[in-house]
Design a protein around this nucleic acid. Structure first.
Length: 303
RNA sequence: CGCGGGGUGGAGAAGUCCGGCAUCUCGCCUGGCUCAUAACCAGGAGAUCGCGGGUUCAAAUCCCGCCCCCGCAA
């Protein structure tokens, strides 16, 4: 028997799940994603990754400016879905839609709920220094990331984990987990488990300026920040009036921060030694980059 | 036409405003020193200064056109 599934999602991470669903025989009858928006250096209007995947597979695409607009509730009613799957959609879905499908609305959240509810679970996992995280499949209710859990799977967080690598890791376990959970959910062999709401934590929203490195923080925190903000929005500092992105760094035995790879504004990325050869002279060559940047940052902030 | 930076021996930079011998830190090659080394000393090779055109006695540098890379932003 076939199920009438609607998929809602936007970025590349969501597109991977969509592909997984299609590949496993759960091809959605419709896909809902964010409107095309200007993107990239040329500010050209580009389709979302989910839209591109849907079109490749001949699935009808809808792009609401605001999903809370009543016309979309009506539209989705007409589609008569049994189930809605939501992965990184980017808009708050109103109660009037959540109650439409008989099998409910299922959300994939890349953390072990109730920990890290909110929009930036990967980043928060790294910022908090968590040793493990995971993926949660849950039924959506009126509160964000609050509904009953259908299934969960954990994964270790590596010492050099970045948001990008964690994204890949959670997709690798999350996609099969979603497929398996769907199968059992349709078979009626899953019992939703209420979350332990008293243990809930919430992620902070990353601002665009969150990437500026505060060198007065301890190296452990700065290291986490560099990894958590990679690739977006990126951790950076000022050097002679120009922005320098710190792409990669690690802590040595003394827990000092060692910069490994960086990218000056307008330049390609380069390793630390290459940077020194071109940009540093004299005594600067021997000094750790982290302290060089720190003194620069201190100097400019006092003026 | 969203804003901005850049293209200089193999790598990263300075020089460009104000035209006048191709510079710096590395890498590479040779020789030396050393038990030894990514260390040190001496010597050396390696360049259509992104591409095309223009101005000039003279262009990396000034003018026009083109290609490519990147930061911001989203």
């Amino acid at each position: 028997m076939t199920h009438r599934i609607i998929f809602m999602g936007t970025p590349d991470y969501a597109a991977q799940y969509l592909e997984g669903l299609i590949f496993s025989g759960y091809k959605p009858i419709a896909v809902i994603t964010q409107p095309d928006r200007p993107a990239g250096r040329a500010q050209t209007v580009e389709a979302t990754p989910v839209k591109r995947t849907a079109e490749r597979n001949n699935i009808p695409v809808h792009q609401p400016e605001d999903i809370r607009d009543p016309q979309w509730t009506k539209k989705i009613q007409e589609l008569k879905p049994d189930l809605i799957v939501v992965v990184a959609f980017g808009q708050i879905i109103p109660q009037s839609i959540l109650t439409i499908p008989s099998k409910g609305c299922i959300n994939v959240h890349p953390s072990l709920l109730p920990r890290h509810r909110g929009a930036t679970p990967w980043q928060e996992t790294i910022l908090q220094g968590d040793a493990t995280t995971g993926v949660t499949i849950m039924l959506m209710d009126e509160k964000m990331d609050h509904g009953p859990i259908l299934s969960q799977e954990g994964v270790d967080v590596a010492p050099d984990e970045t948001t990008k690598s964690l994204e890949d890791k959670t997709a690798a376990i999350g996609i099969p987990l979603l497929i398996g959970t769907l199968t059992r959910w349709f078979a009626g062999t899953v019992t939703p488990a209420e979350q332990h709401h008293d243990q809930a934590t919430y992620t902070r929203l990353l601002k665009k300026e969150s990437g500026r490195i505060d060198w007065s923080k301890c190296p452990v925190e700065i290291d986490r920040m560099i990894r958590a903000l990679n690739p977006w929005p990126g951790a950076w500092t000022e050097w002679h009036g120009k922005r320098i992105k710190i792409l990669k760094a690690h802590l040595d035995e003394q827990n000092d921060l060692i910069v490994d790879e960086l990218q000056p504004e307008g330049k390609k990325s380069m390793d630390a030694k290459t940077f020194r050869n071109g940009y540093c002279q004299g005594a600067q060559k021997e000094q750790p980059l982290s302290s060089l940047f720190q003194s620069q940052a201190d100097g400019s902030s006092k003026e």
